[in-house]
Simulated assay, not measured.
Amino acid sequence: MRHSPRATAGILLVTGALLGTGVQATTAGAAAAPSSAAVHAGADTSAAQQRTAAFWTPERMRTATPLDLVTAGPGALNSPQHRGAHTAVAPTRPSAHVTSFPQSGGPWTGGGAVVKTSGRVFFTFQGRTASCSGDAITSRNASTVITAGHCVKYQGSWHTNWTFVPGYHDGQAPYGTWTATKTLSTPQWSASEDMNYDVGLAVVAPLGGKKLTDVVGAQGLEFNGAYNKPMYSFGFPAAAPYDGTKLIHCSGDSSQDFLLTKDHGLGCDMTGGSSGGPWFTSFDESTGTGLQASVNSFGYTFLPGTMFGPYFGDEAKAAYEQAESAS
């Protein structure tokens, strides 16, 4: 992500399947669930959903401001906590197919499931329209989107008019706009905006009588996985030099954040608007599927061209399990 001037550490506020039936969730190991996720009620009636859908005209989507880099909140330097056993939740376990490691973002031209599961996130933040990225993930309710925590709540306020647009391209919403009935974040993010836990989720209402992942498919998830391995990051950066009109990706060997210690790092110059976009391990370029292990989250002024994403540990897993059980 190309960084604009900011404080010493900042959050890059950016947005991000197997198609078909018979999706299975597999678990390797078990861990005790941490505290419950923080939950905010969204458009939980049909009338509210219709109002939100009507609010997001194509023009409002085009002019939504990508959330910019911000100063790290309290608790960002909390010491790491114990991580549980490695857990994967996935429709499949695709084989890795890594061919190159570009350090700057480029349009994704490989096709596959990721062009349908990833999308832009739109919402109202402090009276203005704004954007992030997100990804449709495998879930029991077939209606769960994962993004960054600051893409659902920031500076003490939950975002409103929250909508997910999978497959967004050049102002088009080919698979519809999906309105959140509720949004969630890890309790650590909600309480103190701790960047180690910058994970948010949304449960979206059916559209045209169909559920989200029945329409666009779903990506698998990995919890308590390894560090220092190949990763692919996707998002819809909308701040210069990008314009939010297409899916951008970076790929390379990830690293472990040497300062906050819990997070993943990756060479990438994606900008504002890409926050919340998915990071995949075991990504198969031929099918566009992988196991999501993080989201675009933040960057440091002294490390231009590098982005960081929160580690998906027990806390993220607990928030995910709460979201996928919601209606």
Rank of each mutant, 00 (worst) to 15 (best):
Q81E: 11
G176D: 02
P174N: 04
D194R: 15
F298G: 15
G111T: 05
L77W: 06
S139L: 04
A53S: 15
F125K: 07
G112T: 10
H249C: 09
P304T: 08
G149T: 09
P174D: 02
D269Y: 01
F258L: 09
P94M: 02
D243L: 08
L69E: 14
S274Q: 02
P237F: 02
K317I: 03
D253V: 07
A202G: 07
A72M: 14
T281R: 08
W56D: 00
G29T: 10
T287L: 03
Y311T: 08
A43T: 01
C268L: 03
T147C: 13
R93S: 07
S143M: 08
G167N: 08
V165Y: 00
T163R: 00
S286P: 01
Y300A: 08
F123N: 00
G156S: 11
G105D: 13
P107F: 02
H264W: 08
D214N: 11
H249R: 12
T144G: 10
L12K: 02
T129A: 15
G127M: 06
G105C: 11
W56L: 00
G110A: 15
F258R: 09
T52I: 14
A25I: 14
A64Q: 06
G299W: 02
L207R: 08
D44A: 05
L259N: 06
Y168P: 07
